[in-house]
């Protein structure tokens, strides 16, 4: 049994997965498609089926660029990016489960890296 359930994901994201008509446009337009194990359309389908654990364990949740392409282009207004974020939050909100830790940062810096990159990465990958 899943420790986390579908309801939490749906509530946290505000997404109605039933609106999806399985058209695949979100995955077709996702810039991270090739890097993902599960693609946006699969996120929608698997959340509906309640396969939360599988998704939470997948590195795909860290590949989303929050570029809103899937949100903008979905003909049904399903907003798959919000599901990915909700799942990622379920992981990183747990103690010690931050994907990006403060100690990791110095290794990633270079003299031109804008603050924006660090702040946004922390916002997305840690709590």
């Amino acid at each position: 049994m899943s420790k986390y359930d579908k309801e939490q994901v749906l509530c946290s994201s505000g997404v109605n997965v039933l609106k999806c008509m399985r058209c695949g446009k979100c995955s077709a337009t996702c810039p991270s498609y090739d890097e993902m194990e599960y693609h946006p359309h699969e996120f929608v389908y698997m959340v509906e089926k309640g396969q939360i654990d599988k998704l939470m364990a997948s590195p795909s949740i860290y590949k989303c660029l929050s570029c809103y392409a899937c949100v903008e282009r979905c003909p049904r207004g399903v907003e798959p990016a919000k599901l990915v974020e909700a799942l990622r939050l379920l992981v990183i909100r747990q103690q010690g489960q931050n994907h990006l830790k403060a100690d990791d940062i110095p290794a990633l810096l270079d003299e031109d890296l804008p603050q924006q990159a660090i702040v946004t990465a922390l916002r997305k990958y840690s709590k």
Binding site: C23, G24, K25, S27, A28, T29, C30, H39, H41, R73
Partner: peptide, 20 residues
């Protein structure tokens, strides 16, 4: 089965079609 996401015209006149 799968909608087209983006069409990018290329310099050589071809069209790059991205779909899944």
């Amino acid at each position: 089965k799968g909608m087209v996401g983006k069409v990018t015209p290329r310099a050589d006149g071809k069209l790059s079609v991205q779909a899944s």
